[in-house]
Design a binder for these strands. Sequence first.
RNA 1: GCGCCUGUAGCUCAGCUGGAUAGAGCAACGGACUUCUAAUCCGUAGGUCGGGGGUUCGAAUCCCUCCAGGCGUGCCA
Length: 555
Amino acid sequence: MKKIIRQITLNAAQTAFENKELNTSEFSSFTIEEPKVASHGDLATNFAMVNAKAQKMAPRKIAEIIIRYIDATDSIIEKTEIAGPGFINFFIRPAAWYPVLENICQQDTEYGFSDIGNGQTVQVEFVSANPTGPLHVGHGRGAIVGDSVASILTACGYDVKREYYINDAGKQIQTLGISVFLRCRELDGQTIDFPEDGYQGDYISDIAKNLCKEKGDWIFNVGEEDAVAFCSKFAADKMIIEIRNVLNTLGIKFDNWYSEQALVDSGKIKSVIEQFKQSNIIYEKDDALWFKTKKFGDEKDRVVVRNNGRTTYFASDIAYHQDKLDRGFDRIIDVWGADHHGYIPRIKASIKASGRDENQFVVILTQLVNLLRKGIPVSMGKRSGQFITLKEVMDEVGRDAVRFIFLTRHYDSPLDFDLEIAKQKTNDNPVYYVQYVHARISSIIKKAADEKGITDITFNDDAVAMLKESEEIQLIKHLARYPETIIASAESMEPHRIAFYLMALAADFHAYYNKHRVLTEDTTLAAGRLYLVKAVQTVIRNGLTLLGVSAPDVM
RNA sequence: GCGCCUGUAGCUCAGCUGGAUAGAGCAACGGACUUCUAAUCCGUAGGUCGGGGGUUCGAAUCCCUCCAGGCGUGCCA
Protein backbone atom coordinates (compact mmCIF):
# COMPACT_ATOMS: atom_id res chain seq x y z
CA MET A 1 0.00 0.00 0.00
CA LYS A 2 2.84 2.34 0.87
CA LYS A 3 4.40 1.62 -2.48
CA ILE A 4 1.22 2.54 -4.26
CA ILE A 5 0.83 5.80 -2.38
CA ARG A 6 4.46 6.62 -3.05
CA GLN A 7 3.93 6.09 -6.75
CA ILE A 8 0.77 8.17 -6.74
CA THR A 9 2.62 11.00 -5.02
CA LEU A 10 5.50 10.84 -7.46
CA ASN A 11 3.18 10.76 -10.46
CA ALA A 12 1.31 13.78 -9.19
CA ALA A 13 4.54 15.67 -8.60
CA GLN A 14 5.83 14.76 -12.04
CA THR A 15 2.65 15.92 -13.75
CA ALA A 16 2.69 19.10 -11.73
CA PHE A 17 6.23 19.75 -12.89
CA GLU A 18 5.31 19.11 -16.51
CA ASN A 19 2.56 21.66 -16.11
CA LYS A 20 5.12 24.08 -14.71
CA GLU A 21 3.55 24.25 -11.30
CA LEU A 22 6.68 22.88 -9.62
CA ASN A 23 10.13 24.34 -10.19
CA THR A 24 12.16 21.18 -10.42
CA SER A 25 11.67 17.47 -10.94
CA GLU A 26 14.54 16.62 -8.63
CA PHE A 27 12.52 15.31 -5.72
CA SER A 28 14.29 14.65 -2.44
CA SER A 29 13.64 11.35 -0.74
CA PHE A 30 10.46 11.38 1.26
CA THR A 31 8.69 8.96 3.52
CA ILE A 32 5.26 7.36 3.52
CA GLU A 33 4.20 6.40 6.98
CA GLU A 34 1.25 5.64 9.14
CA PRO A 35 0.26 8.51 11.38
CA LYS A 36 -0.04 7.69 15.04
CA VAL A 37 -3.41 9.34 15.22
CA ALA A 38 -6.27 7.90 13.24
CA SER A 39 -7.66 11.34 12.42
CA HIS A 40 -4.54 11.94 10.36
CA GLY A 41 -5.57 9.33 7.86
CA ASP A 42 -4.25 5.92 6.93
CA LEU A 43 -1.00 7.05 5.42
CA ALA A 44 0.84 10.35 5.27
CA THR A 45 3.81 11.75 3.44
CA ASN A 46 6.25 14.50 4.28
CA PHE A 47 6.89 15.08 0.58
CA ALA A 48 5.97 18.76 0.66
CA MET A 49 8.16 19.51 3.65
CA VAL A 50 11.33 17.81 2.50
CA ASN A 51 11.00 19.40 -0.93
CA ALA A 52 10.30 22.91 0.25
CA LYS A 53 13.88 24.03 -0.12
CA ALA A 54 14.52 22.57 -3.55
CA GLN A 55 11.22 23.88 -4.89
CA LYS A 56 11.70 27.23 -3.21
CA MET A 57 8.12 27.10 -2.12
CA ALA A 58 6.21 26.89 1.14
CA PRO A 59 5.44 23.29 2.18
CA ARG A 60 1.70 23.79 2.35
CA LYS A 61 1.72 25.36 -1.10
CA ILE A 62 3.47 22.31 -2.54
CA ALA A 63 1.08 20.00 -0.77
CA GLU A 64 -1.82 21.87 -2.27
CA ILE A 65 -0.45 21.44 -5.77
CA ILE A 66 0.25 17.74 -5.28
CA ILE A 67 -3.22 17.10 -4.01
CA ARG A 68 -4.73 18.79 -7.03
CA TYR A 69 -2.90 16.37 -9.28
CA ILE A 70 -3.97 13.28 -7.38
CA ASP A 71 -6.94 11.67 -9.01
CA ALA A 72 -9.06 10.73 -6.06
CA THR A 73 -11.98 9.48 -8.05
CA ASP A 74 -12.12 5.83 -8.88
CA SER A 75 -8.97 4.96 -6.98
CA ILE A 76 -8.02 3.43 -3.68
CA ILE A 77 -7.93 6.87 -2.16
CA GLU A 78 -11.07 8.14 -0.52
CA LYS A 79 -9.76 11.60 0.20
CA THR A 80 -6.63 13.59 0.87
CA GLU A 81 -5.90 16.55 3.08
CA ILE A 82 -3.16 18.93 4.04
CA ALA A 83 -2.33 19.04 7.72
CA GLY A 84 0.10 20.57 10.17
CA PRO A 85 3.24 22.04 8.66
CA GLY A 86 2.52 20.41 5.29
CA PHE A 87 1.78 16.73 5.68
CA ILE A 88 -0.34 15.19 2.99
CA ASN A 89 -2.73 12.72 4.61
CA PHE A 90 -4.27 9.93 2.61
CA PHE A 91 -7.51 8.24 3.55
CA ILE A 92 -7.78 4.83 1.94
CA ARG A 93 -11.08 3.26 0.94
CA PRO A 94 -11.78 0.27 3.22
CA ALA A 95 -12.31 -2.01 0.24
CA ALA A 96 -8.81 -1.25 -0.97
CA TRP A 97 -7.44 -3.29 1.94
CA TYR A 98 -9.32 -6.51 1.16
CA PRO A 99 -6.80 -7.91 -1.33
CA VAL A 100 -4.34 -8.16 1.56
CA LEU A 101 -6.40 -11.02 2.96
CA GLU A 102 -6.35 -12.90 -0.29
CA ASN A 103 -2.61 -12.44 -0.47
CA ILE A 104 -2.13 -13.89 2.96
CA CYS A 105 -4.31 -16.85 2.20
CA GLN A 106 -2.54 -17.61 -1.06
CA GLN A 107 0.99 -17.16 0.22
CA ASP A 108 0.16 -18.88 3.49
CA THR A 109 3.39 -19.92 5.22
CA GLU A 110 5.33 -17.70 2.86
CA TYR A 111 3.38 -14.53 3.51
CA GLY A 112 5.94 -11.96 4.59
CA PHE A 113 8.77 -13.55 2.67
CA SER A 114 10.66 -11.37 0.23
CA ASP A 115 13.63 -11.54 -2.06
CA ILE A 116 15.53 -8.49 -0.90
CA GLY A 117 18.47 -10.77 -0.14
CA ASN A 118 18.61 -11.69 -3.78
CA GLY A 119 20.27 -14.99 -3.03
CA GLN A 120 23.29 -13.43 -1.35
CA THR A 121 25.11 -15.89 0.83
CA VAL A 122 25.32 -15.11 4.51
CA GLN A 123 26.89 -16.99 7.33
CA VAL A 124 25.72 -16.44 10.87
CA GLU A 125 28.15 -17.70 13.47
CA PHE A 126 26.81 -17.79 16.99
CA VAL A 127 27.11 -19.33 20.43
CA SER A 128 30.59 -20.72 19.75
CA ALA A 129 31.02 -21.17 23.47
CA ASN A 130 34.14 -22.97 24.64
CA PRO A 131 33.40 -26.62 25.29
CA THR A 132 34.76 -26.26 28.79
CA GLY A 133 31.48 -25.94 30.61
CA PRO A 134 27.73 -25.87 30.22
CA LEU A 135 25.98 -23.00 28.48
CA HIS A 136 24.52 -20.26 30.65
CA VAL A 137 21.74 -17.80 29.92
CA GLY A 138 24.12 -15.32 28.31
CA HIS A 139 24.94 -17.94 25.68
CA GLY A 140 21.23 -18.53 25.39
CA ARG A 141 20.62 -14.96 24.40
CA GLY A 142 23.24 -15.10 21.67
CA ALA A 143 21.90 -18.45 20.52
CA ILE A 144 18.36 -17.23 20.22
CA VAL A 145 19.20 -13.91 18.60
CA GLY A 146 21.57 -15.58 16.14
CA ASP A 147 19.11 -18.30 15.24
CA SER A 148 16.28 -15.87 14.77
CA VAL A 149 18.33 -13.46 12.68
CA ALA A 150 19.28 -16.41 10.49
CA SER A 151 15.63 -17.37 10.06
CA ILE A 152 14.59 -13.84 9.24
CA LEU A 153 17.34 -13.40 6.67
CA THR A 154 16.36 -16.70 5.10
CA ALA A 155 12.78 -15.47 4.83
CA CYS A 156 14.09 -12.41 3.03
CA GLY A 157 15.80 -14.34 0.31
CA TYR A 158 19.30 -14.68 1.71
CA ASP A 159 21.06 -17.99 1.48
CA VAL A 160 21.97 -18.45 5.14
CA LYS A 161 24.21 -20.93 6.91
CA ARG A 162 24.44 -21.29 10.68
CA GLU A 163 27.82 -22.12 12.12
CA TYR A 164 29.25 -22.95 15.53
CA TYR A 165 32.97 -22.44 16.03
CA ILE A 166 34.33 -24.91 18.55
CA ASN A 167 37.35 -23.67 20.48
CA ASP A 168 38.72 -27.14 20.95
CA ALA A 169 42.35 -26.11 20.79
CA GLY A 170 44.44 -23.96 23.04
CA LYS A 171 45.00 -23.36 26.68
CA GLN A 172 41.45 -23.61 28.01
CA ILE A 173 41.14 -27.14 26.64
CA GLN A 174 44.38 -28.04 28.34
CA THR A 175 42.97 -26.66 31.58
CA LEU A 176 39.81 -28.67 31.06
CA GLY A 177 41.83 -31.82 30.59
CA ILE A 178 43.89 -31.20 33.71
CA SER A 179 40.76 -30.50 35.73
CA VAL A 180 39.15 -33.73 34.65
CA PHE A 181 42.34 -35.73 35.09
CA LEU A 182 42.72 -34.47 38.65
CA ARG A 183 39.16 -35.40 39.48
CA CYS A 184 39.87 -38.87 38.08
CA ARG A 185 42.82 -39.21 40.37
CA GLU A 186 40.70 -38.02 43.22
CA LEU A 187 38.14 -40.70 42.44
CA ASP A 188 40.98 -43.18 42.41
CA GLY A 189 41.71 -42.22 46.00
CA GLN A 190 44.77 -40.11 45.33
CA THR A 191 45.27 -36.77 47.03
CA ILE A 192 45.24 -33.90 44.62
CA ASP A 193 46.06 -30.24 44.63
CA PHE A 194 43.36 -28.63 42.52
CA PRO A 195 44.66 -25.50 40.80
CA GLU A 196 42.93 -22.19 41.29
CA ASP A 197 42.37 -21.65 37.58
CA GLY A 198 40.95 -25.14 37.10
CA TYR A 199 37.29 -25.68 36.31
CA GLN A 200 35.48 -26.20 39.59
CA GLY A 201 31.97 -27.19 38.55
CA ASP A 202 30.33 -30.45 39.48
CA TYR A 203 30.06 -31.27 35.81
CA ILE A 204 33.82 -31.86 35.80
CA SER A 205 33.44 -34.57 38.42
CA ASP A 206 30.58 -36.09 36.46
CA ILE A 207 32.71 -36.30 33.37
CA ALA A 208 35.54 -37.75 35.43
CA LYS A 209 33.24 -40.46 36.75
CA ASN A 210 32.21 -41.41 33.24
CA LEU A 211 35.76 -41.41 32.07
CA CYS A 212 36.96 -43.56 34.95
CA LYS A 213 34.28 -46.06 34.21
CA GLU A 214 35.36 -46.36 30.59
CA LYS A 215 39.10 -45.85 30.78
CA GLY A 216 39.96 -45.93 34.48
CA ASP A 217 42.95 -48.24 34.34
CA TRP A 218 44.31 -46.93 31.12
CA ILE A 219 44.73 -43.25 32.03
CA PHE A 220 46.79 -43.99 35.11
CA ASN A 221 49.12 -46.23 33.19
CA VAL A 222 49.99 -43.98 30.28
CA GLY A 223 52.10 -40.89 30.86
CA GLU A 224 50.45 -37.86 32.40
CA GLU A 225 50.73 -35.90 29.19
CA ASP A 226 48.84 -38.51 27.20
CA ALA A 227 46.32 -38.88 29.96
CA VAL A 228 45.58 -35.18 30.08
CA ALA A 229 45.34 -35.02 26.31
CA PHE A 230 42.87 -37.86 26.40
CA CYS A 231 40.90 -36.20 29.19
CA SER A 232 40.76 -32.99 27.19
CA LYS A 233 39.35 -34.68 24.16
CA PHE A 234 36.98 -36.85 26.11
CA ALA A 235 35.63 -33.92 28.14
CA ALA A 236 35.35 -31.57 25.19
CA ASP A 237 33.44 -34.18 23.20
CA LYS A 238 31.07 -34.70 26.11
CA MET A 239 30.55 -30.98 26.51
CA ILE A 240 29.83 -30.52 22.83
CA ILE A 241 27.21 -33.23 22.96
CA GLU A 242 25.62 -31.57 25.93
CA ILE A 243 25.73 -28.15 24.31
CA ARG A 244 24.21 -29.57 21.18
CA ASN A 245 21.41 -31.14 23.20
CA VAL A 246 20.54 -27.93 24.98
CA LEU A 247 20.53 -26.03 21.72
CA ASN A 248 18.27 -28.70 20.26
CA THR A 249 15.75 -28.15 23.00
CA LEU A 250 15.86 -24.48 22.07
CA GLY A 251 15.08 -25.47 18.52
CA ILE A 252 18.49 -24.53 17.20
CA LYS A 253 20.37 -26.56 14.64
CA PHE A 254 23.63 -25.63 12.99
CA ASP A 255 24.59 -26.36 9.42
CA ASN A 256 28.21 -26.61 10.39
CA TRP A 257 30.28 -27.24 13.51
CA TYR A 258 33.71 -25.84 12.76
CA SER A 259 36.59 -27.14 14.83
CA GLU A 260 39.46 -24.85 15.77
CA GLN A 261 41.64 -27.93 16.08
CA ALA A 262 40.81 -28.83 12.49
CA LEU A 263 41.79 -25.31 11.52
CA VAL A 264 45.12 -25.76 13.29
CA ASP A 265 45.69 -29.17 11.70
CA SER A 266 44.92 -27.85 8.24
CA GLY A 267 47.91 -25.52 8.50
CA LYS A 268 45.77 -22.53 7.61
CA ILE A 269 46.89 -20.54 10.62
CA LYS A 270 50.52 -20.96 9.69
CA SER A 271 49.96 -20.13 6.08
CA VAL A 272 47.97 -17.01 6.88
CA ILE A 273 50.70 -15.80 9.21
CA GLU A 274 53.27 -16.53 6.55
CA GLN A 275 51.25 -14.66 3.98
CA PHE A 276 50.90 -11.58 6.17
CA LYS A 277 54.57 -11.76 7.04
CA GLN A 278 55.42 -11.57 3.36
CA SER A 279 53.24 -8.55 2.85
CA ASN A 280 54.88 -6.97 5.87
CA ILE A 281 51.71 -6.81 7.95
CA ILE A 282 53.19 -9.12 10.59
CA TYR A 283 56.53 -8.23 12.15
CA GLU A 284 58.79 -9.48 14.92
CA LYS A 285 59.38 -7.70 18.21
CA ASP A 286 60.48 -8.98 21.65
CA ASP A 287 60.71 -12.51 20.25
CA ALA A 288 57.01 -12.46 19.37
CA LEU A 289 55.14 -11.91 16.11
CA TRP A 290 52.86 -8.88 15.98
CA PHE A 291 50.05 -8.00 13.65
CA LYS A 292 49.89 -4.39 12.49
CA THR A 293 46.32 -3.99 13.62
CA LYS A 294 46.92 -0.36 14.56
CA LYS A 295 47.58 0.48 10.95
CA PHE A 296 44.10 -0.83 10.15
CA GLY A 297 42.14 0.96 12.78
CA ASP A 298 42.80 -0.84 16.06
CA GLU A 299 44.22 0.88 19.15
CA LYS A 300 47.49 -0.98 19.01
CA ASP A 301 49.23 -3.91 17.41
CA ARG A 302 48.40 -7.39 18.64
CA VAL A 303 50.47 -10.51 19.20
CA VAL A 304 49.78 -13.50 16.99
CA VAL A 305 52.67 -15.74 17.99
CA ARG A 306 53.95 -15.57 21.55
CA ASN A 307 57.61 -15.57 22.45
CA ASN A 308 57.16 -19.21 23.50
CA GLY A 309 56.26 -20.05 19.92
CA ARG A 310 52.56 -20.72 20.49
CA THR A 311 49.95 -18.91 18.48
CA THR A 312 47.35 -16.76 20.20
CA TYR A 313 43.60 -17.04 20.03
CA PHE A 314 43.68 -14.02 17.77
CA ALA A 315 45.85 -15.91 15.29
CA SER A 316 43.23 -18.64 15.05
CA ASP A 317 40.54 -16.05 14.62
CA ILE A 318 42.34 -14.33 11.80
CA ALA A 319 42.65 -17.60 9.95
CA TYR A 320 39.08 -18.57 10.80
CA HIS A 321 37.63 -15.37 9.42
CA GLN A 322 39.81 -15.55 6.35
CA ASP A 323 38.54 -19.06 5.86
CA LYS A 324 34.94 -17.95 6.15
CA LEU A 325 35.43 -15.36 3.45
CA ASP A 326 37.40 -17.85 1.35
CA ARG A 327 34.35 -20.04 1.47
CA GLY A 328 32.65 -17.33 -0.56
CA PHE A 329 30.12 -15.83 1.82
CA ASP A 330 28.98 -12.38 0.78
CA ARG A 331 28.46 -11.45 4.36
CA ILE A 332 29.58 -12.99 7.64
CA ILE A 333 27.76 -12.17 10.83
CA ASP A 334 29.21 -12.97 14.24
CA VAL A 335 27.04 -12.90 17.32
CA TRP A 336 29.16 -12.11 20.37
CA GLY A 337 28.61 -11.21 23.97
CA ALA A 338 29.19 -7.57 24.72
CA ASP A 339 32.26 -8.42 26.77
CA HIS A 340 34.05 -9.24 23.53
CA HIS A 341 33.41 -5.91 21.90
CA GLY A 342 37.05 -4.87 22.18
CA TYR A 343 37.78 -7.66 19.78
CA ILE A 344 35.94 -6.20 16.83
CA PRO A 345 38.57 -3.71 15.66
CA ARG A 346 41.27 -6.33 15.45
CA ILE A 347 39.19 -8.78 13.45
CA LYS A 348 38.13 -5.95 11.16
CA ALA A 349 41.76 -4.98 10.87
CA SER A 350 42.71 -8.48 9.80
CA ILE A 351 40.01 -8.48 7.16
CA LYS A 352 41.02 -5.09 5.88
CA ALA A 353 44.66 -6.11 5.85
CA SER A 354 43.86 -8.99 3.55
CA GLY A 355 42.50 -6.52 1.05
CA ARG A 356 38.87 -7.36 1.56
CA ASP A 357 35.89 -5.18 2.32
CA GLU A 358 35.56 -4.95 6.08
CA ASN A 359 31.84 -4.31 5.68
CA GLN A 360 31.37 -7.93 4.73
CA PHE A 361 31.95 -8.63 8.41
CA VAL A 362 29.25 -7.63 10.86
CA VAL A 363 29.07 -8.24 14.58
CA ILE A 364 25.90 -8.40 16.61
CA LEU A 365 26.80 -7.69 20.22
CA THR A 366 24.29 -9.01 22.68
CA GLN A 367 24.40 -7.24 26.02
CA LEU A 368 24.70 -9.14 29.25
CA VAL A 369 21.87 -11.03 30.88
CA ASN A 370 21.23 -10.60 34.58
CA LEU A 371 19.58 -13.66 35.95
CA LEU A 372 17.14 -12.90 38.74
CA ARG A 373 14.70 -14.76 40.88
CA LYS A 374 11.94 -12.58 42.28
CA GLY A 375 14.08 -9.56 41.65
CA ILE A 376 17.10 -10.95 43.47
CA PRO A 377 20.23 -11.58 41.39
CA VAL A 378 21.31 -15.19 41.01
CA SER A 379 25.06 -15.58 41.07
CA MET A 380 26.66 -16.50 37.79
CA GLY A 381 30.33 -17.19 38.48
CA LYS A 382 31.61 -19.81 36.09
CA ARG A 383 34.75 -20.98 37.77
CA SER A 384 33.09 -21.14 41.16
CA GLY A 385 30.68 -23.71 39.78
CA GLN A 386 27.83 -21.77 41.37
CA PHE A 387 25.75 -20.99 38.35
CA ILE A 388 22.44 -21.80 36.83
CA THR A 389 22.89 -23.35 33.43
CA LEU A 390 20.86 -22.66 30.34
CA LYS A 391 19.56 -26.21 30.57
CA GLU A 392 18.21 -25.60 34.06
CA VAL A 393 16.52 -22.41 32.91
CA MET A 394 15.03 -24.25 29.96
CA ASP A 395 13.74 -27.05 32.18
CA GLU A 396 12.16 -24.54 34.51
CA VAL A 397 10.75 -22.02 32.07
CA GLY A 398 10.35 -23.76 28.74
CA ARG A 399 11.49 -23.05 25.25
CA ASP A 400 8.79 -20.69 24.03
CA ALA A 401 8.94 -18.36 27.01
CA VAL A 402 12.74 -18.23 27.05
CA ARG A 403 12.93 -17.47 23.36
CA PHE A 404 10.22 -14.87 23.40
CA ILE A 405 11.60 -13.04 26.42
CA PHE A 406 15.03 -12.79 24.85
CA LEU A 407 13.47 -11.56 21.62
CA THR A 408 11.29 -8.87 23.17
CA ARG A 409 14.35 -6.83 23.95
CA HIS A 410 16.70 -5.10 21.63
CA TYR A 411 19.89 -7.18 21.85
CA ASP A 412 21.71 -3.94 22.50
CA SER A 413 20.24 -3.35 25.91
CA PRO A 414 21.10 -5.29 29.04
CA LEU A 415 18.41 -7.73 30.03
CA ASP A 416 17.01 -8.71 33.39
CA PHE A 417 15.76 -12.26 33.17
CA ASP A 418 13.58 -13.07 36.14
CA LEU A 419 12.91 -16.77 36.47
CA GLU A 420 9.70 -16.25 38.41
CA ILE A 421 8.26 -13.82 35.88
CA ALA A 422 9.34 -16.09 33.03
CA LYS A 423 7.33 -18.93 34.51
CA GLN A 424 4.17 -16.91 35.03
CA LYS A 425 1.41 -17.26 32.52
CA THR A 426 0.38 -13.66 32.73
CA ASN A 427 0.85 -10.60 30.66
CA ASP A 428 4.20 -10.03 32.31
CA ASN A 429 5.08 -12.82 29.98
CA PRO A 430 3.55 -11.88 26.63
CA VAL A 431 4.49 -15.03 24.80
CA TYR A 432 1.22 -16.56 26.00
CA TYR A 433 -0.69 -13.48 24.98
CA VAL A 434 0.44 -13.97 21.40
CA GLN A 435 0.09 -17.73 21.38
CA TYR A 436 -3.38 -17.39 22.82
CA VAL A 437 -4.47 -15.64 19.64
CA HIS A 438 -3.44 -18.65 17.63
CA ALA A 439 -5.19 -21.06 19.96
CA ARG A 440 -8.37 -19.01 20.05
CA ILE A 441 -8.57 -18.89 16.29
CA SER A 442 -7.92 -22.62 16.00
CA SER A 443 -10.80 -23.06 18.37
CA ILE A 444 -13.08 -20.88 16.27
CA ILE A 445 -12.15 -22.73 13.11
CA LYS A 446 -12.78 -26.04 14.81
CA LYS A 447 -16.13 -24.87 16.03
CA ALA A 448 -17.04 -23.64 12.57
CA ALA A 449 -16.33 -27.09 11.22
CA ASP A 450 -17.94 -29.06 14.04
CA GLU A 451 -21.09 -27.06 14.50
CA LYS A 452 -21.62 -25.23 11.24
CA GLY A 453 -20.00 -27.63 8.87
CA ILE A 454 -17.72 -24.95 7.42
CA THR A 455 -14.48 -26.57 6.37
CA ASP A 456 -13.65 -24.52 3.34
CA ILE A 457 -12.47 -21.05 4.27
CA THR A 458 -11.67 -19.44 0.95
CA PHE A 459 -11.80 -16.00 -0.57
CA ASN A 460 -15.24 -14.79 -1.46
CA ASP A 461 -15.95 -11.25 -2.61
CA ASP A 462 -19.37 -11.02 -1.01
CA ALA A 463 -18.21 -12.36 2.32
CA VAL A 464 -15.11 -10.20 2.55
CA ALA A 465 -17.13 -7.15 1.57
CA MET A 466 -19.03 -7.63 4.83
CA LEU A 467 -15.93 -6.62 6.81
CA LYS A 468 -16.88 -3.05 7.60
CA GLU A 469 -16.24 -2.65 11.31
CA SER A 470 -13.43 -0.26 12.15
CA GLU A 471 -11.73 -3.02 14.17
CA GLU A 472 -11.80 -5.22 11.09
CA ILE A 473 -10.24 -2.63 8.83
CA GLN A 474 -7.66 -1.93 11.49
CA LEU A 475 -6.80 -5.62 11.70
CA ILE A 476 -6.36 -5.87 7.95
CA LYS A 477 -4.19 -2.78 7.91
CA HIS A 478 -2.12 -4.32 10.63
CA LEU A 479 -1.74 -7.52 8.62
CA ALA A 480 -0.67 -5.50 5.61
CA ARG A 481 2.21 -4.13 7.63
CA TYR A 482 3.69 -7.56 8.33
CA PRO A 483 5.93 -7.90 5.26
CA GLU A 484 7.58 -4.54 5.77
CA THR A 485 8.13 -5.43 9.42
CA ILE A 486 10.04 -8.53 8.39
CA ILE A 487 12.13 -6.57 5.93
CA ALA A 488 12.96 -3.90 8.50
CA SER A 489 13.80 -6.62 10.94
CA ALA A 490 16.14 -8.25 8.43
CA GLU A 491 17.83 -5.04 7.42
CA SER A 492 18.51 -4.00 10.97
CA MET A 493 19.02 -7.60 12.12
CA GLU A 494 16.65 -6.89 14.97
CA PRO A 495 14.26 -9.76 15.68
CA HIS A 496 12.58 -7.87 18.50
CA ARG A 497 10.66 -5.83 15.95
CA ILE A 498 8.74 -8.93 14.99
CA ALA A 499 8.01 -9.73 18.62
CA PHE A 500 6.58 -6.27 19.17
CA TYR A 501 4.63 -6.43 15.96
CA LEU A 502 3.06 -9.69 17.09
CA MET A 503 2.12 -8.31 20.49
CA ALA A 504 0.43 -5.34 18.87
CA LEU A 505 -1.40 -7.55 16.39
CA ALA A 506 -2.46 -9.82 19.23
CA ALA A 507 -3.83 -6.84 21.12
CA ASP A 508 -5.88 -5.82 18.08
CA PHE A 509 -7.20 -9.33 17.72
CA HIS A 510 -8.16 -9.80 21.37
CA ALA A 511 -9.99 -6.49 21.33
CA TYR A 512 -11.83 -7.49 18.17
CA TYR A 513 -12.65 -10.91 19.56
CA ASN A 514 -14.20 -9.43 22.66
CA LYS A 515 -16.26 -6.95 20.74
CA HIS A 516 -17.46 -8.94 17.74
CA ARG A 517 -18.53 -12.50 17.31
CA VAL A 518 -16.99 -14.38 14.40
CA LEU A 519 -19.56 -17.16 13.99
CA THR A 520 -22.65 -15.03 13.58
CA GLU A 521 -26.06 -16.09 12.34
CA ASP A 522 -25.43 -14.19 9.13
CA THR A 523 -23.50 -16.84 7.23
CA THR A 524 -21.99 -14.43 4.73
CA LEU A 525 -20.65 -12.23 7.47
CA ALA A 526 -19.41 -15.27 9.36
CA ALA A 527 -17.58 -16.44 6.26
CA GLY A 528 -15.92 -13.04 5.86
CA ARG A 529 -14.88 -12.94 9.50
CA LEU A 530 -13.59 -16.50 9.41
CA TYR A 531 -11.48 -15.54 6.45
CA LEU A 532 -10.12 -12.50 8.29
CA VAL A 533 -9.40 -14.43 11.44
CA LYS A 534 -7.66 -17.15 9.52
CA ALA A 535 -5.39 -14.53 7.97
CA VAL A 536 -4.58 -13.24 11.45
CA GLN A 537 -3.73 -16.74 12.51
CA THR A 538 -1.47 -17.22 9.52
CA VAL A 539 0.47 -14.07 10.28
CA ILE A 540 0.79 -14.90 13.98
CA ARG A 541 2.06 -18.34 13.10
CA ASN A 542 4.52 -17.05 10.51
CA GLY A 543 5.89 -14.45 12.90
CA LEU A 544 6.25 -16.89 15.77
CA THR A 545 7.99 -19.31 13.45
CA LEU A 546 10.63 -16.71 12.62
CA LEU A 547 11.20 -16.29 16.33
CA GLY A 548 11.37 -20.03 16.85
CA VAL A 549 8.29 -20.05 19.05
CA SER A 550 5.52 -22.59 18.62
CA ALA A 551 1.98 -21.71 17.61
CA PRO A 552 -0.28 -24.02 19.63
CA ASP A 553 -3.84 -24.92 18.62
CA VAL A 554 -4.89 -25.53 22.19
CA MET A 555 -3.80 -23.82 25.37
C1' G B 1 42.61 7.85 31.08
C1' C B 2 40.66 5.79 26.43
C1' G B 3 36.85 2.78 23.73
C1' C B 4 31.86 0.43 23.22
C1' C B 5 26.81 0.05 25.21
C1' U B 6 22.86 1.98 28.22
C1' G B 7 19.82 6.10 30.68
C1' U B 8 12.04 7.14 28.29
C1' A B 9 5.78 6.30 33.56
C1' G B 10 6.78 3.35 40.39
C1' C B 11 8.85 -1.59 37.60
C1' U B 12 10.19 -4.24 32.70
C1' C B 13 10.66 -2.32 27.93
C1' A B 14 9.08 -0.23 22.68
C1' G B 15 9.47 4.12 19.79
C1' C B 16 9.07 2.04 12.51
C1' U B 17 16.35 5.16 11.35
C1' G B 18 14.15 13.36 11.92
C1' G B 19 7.56 14.02 11.95
C1' A B 20 1.91 15.88 14.14
C1' U B 21 -0.78 15.26 21.11
C1' A B 22 5.96 10.21 23.49
C1' G B 23 3.48 4.37 23.61
C1' A B 24 2.67 -1.00 25.57
C1' G B 25 2.66 -4.57 29.58
C1' C B 26 3.12 -5.13 34.93
C1' A B 27 1.90 -2.90 39.55
C1' A B 28 -2.67 0.71 41.46
C1' C B 29 -7.90 1.92 41.03
C1' G B 30 -13.06 0.99 38.74
C1' G B 31 -15.87 -2.21 35.51
C1' A B 32 -17.15 -6.90 31.84
C1' C B 33 -17.83 -14.33 31.79
C1' U B 34 -25.98 -17.90 30.44
C1' U B 35 -22.75 -16.17 24.14
C1' C B 36 -16.51 -18.69 19.33
C1' U B 37 -11.03 -20.44 25.56
C1' A B 38 -11.41 -14.43 31.20
C1' A B 39 -3.90 -16.98 29.69
C1' U B 40 -9.11 -12.04 27.45
C1' C B 41 -11.43 -7.16 27.16
C1' C B 42 -13.07 -1.86 28.52
C1' G B 43 -12.00 2.49 31.48
C1' U B 44 -9.06 5.83 35.17
C1' A B 45 -4.41 7.46 36.81
C1' G B 46 0.72 7.87 35.87
C1' G B 47 6.31 11.69 31.85
C1' U B 48 11.03 18.10 32.39
C1' C B 49 12.44 11.18 27.20
C1' G B 50 19.54 11.71 32.75
C1' G B 51 21.14 17.56 32.67
C1' G B 52 22.68 21.62 29.45
C1' G B 53 23.82 23.62 24.69
C1' G B 54 23.54 23.19 19.14
C1' U B 55 21.77 21.73 13.97
C1' U B 56 16.12 23.00 11.22
C1' C B 57 10.07 24.04 9.30
C1' G B 58 10.27 19.96 13.32
C1' A B 59 14.67 16.33 17.99
C1' A B 60 13.38 10.87 22.58
C1' U B 61 15.86 10.16 17.64
C1' C B 62 21.51 13.69 14.63
C1' C B 63 26.16 16.72 16.75
C1' C B 64 28.89 18.73 21.18
C1' U B 65 29.41 18.67 26.46
C1' C B 66 28.64 17.12 31.35
C1' C B 67 26.42 13.35 34.98
C1' A B 68 25.24 8.19 36.29
C1' G B 69 25.53 2.76 35.45
C1' G B 70 27.48 -1.71 32.76
C1' C B 71 31.39 -3.87 29.89
C1' G B 72 36.12 -3.76 27.76
C1' U B 73 41.08 -1.98 27.62
C1' G B 74 46.56 -9.43 28.38
C1' C B 75 52.23 -12.53 24.74
C1' C B 76 43.88 -15.31 28.65
C1' A B 77 40.05 -17.40 25.70
